[in-house]
Computed example of a mutant assay.
Amino acid sequence: MARKTSLLPSLLGVGVLLATVAPTTGCLFGGYDGVFFETEDVSIDIPSSGFRADEIHGDAWWLINETTDHVNGWVTTVVETSGYVVEFLSNHRESGVEGTWRIYGPFDDQAGRDVAWLVRITGTDMDTSFEFLVAPRGTKNAADFELMAEGSLTVEDDLRFGNMRIDFDTIENHPDLDMTLLWSYAGDINIEFERHVDSGEKTINLEFDGFEANRTGYLEDDHFRSDETYEYHKAGDGSGSFHLALMGEWDTYPYGWSGPEQERMQLDMLWTPTNEGRALGTITEVDGVGDMLHGDLSLDECFDASGYLTYRSLSELYANEVPSYNFGDASDCVLALP
Rank of each mutant, 00 (worst) to 15 (best):
A2Q: 11
T5K: 02
L7Y: 15
S10R: 11
L12S: 08
L12Y: 14
G13K: 03
V14R: 01
V14L: 00
L18D: 12
F29Y: 11
G31S: 05
Y32P: 00
Y32C: 04
D33R: 13
D33V: 06
G34F: 03
E38T: 14
E40T: 14
I44T: 12
S48L: 08
S49V: 11
I56F: 12
G58C: 05
A60W: 06
W61M: 08
L63V: 11
E66S: 11
T68W: 05
V71Q: 07
N72A: 10
G73N: 15
V75K: 14
T77Q: 13
V78M: 11
V79N: 02
E80H: 01
T81H: 07
G83D: 13
Y84D: 14
Y84C: 04
V86N: 07
F88L: 03
L89G: 05
S90Y: 03
N91V: 00
R93G: 12
G96V: 02
G96Y: 02
Q110G: 06
G112W: 07
D114S: 09
D114C: 03
W117S: 09
L118F: 01
T122P: 00
D127Q: 10
E131Y: 05
A135W: 02
P136Q: 00
P136M: 00
K140I: 09
A142R: 15
A142I: 15
A143M: 01
E146V: 09
L147M: 03
G151Y: 03
S152F: 08
T154Y: 12
F161W: 14
F161D: 12
F161Y: 15
R165A: 14
F168Y: 15
D169E: 12
D169A: 08
T170R: 12
T170G: 12
T170K: 13
N173E: 13
T180P: 00
L182G: 00
A186F: 06
A186E: 14
I189L: 15
I189R: 10
N190L: 15
E201D: 13
K202D: 02
I204G: 02
N205S: 04
N205V: 07
L206G: 11
F208I: 03
D209S: 08
D209C: 09
G210A: 02
E212W: 08
Y218T: 13
E220S: 11
D221H: 06
R225C: 05
S226H: 04
E228Q: 10
Y232A: 07
D237V: 01
S239T: 07
L244D: 07
A245T: 07
L246A: 15
M247T: 04
G248V: 02
Y255T: 10
G256C: 05
S258R: 02
L270Y: 10
N275G: 08
E276L: 06
T282R: 13
T284F: 01
G290P: 06
L293R: 15
C302N: 02
F303S: 04
R312G: 06
N320H: 09
S324C: 04
S324P: 00
S324A: 14
Y325C: 09
Y325D: 09
Y325I: 14
F327V: 10
D329E: 09
A330T: 12
A336I: 04
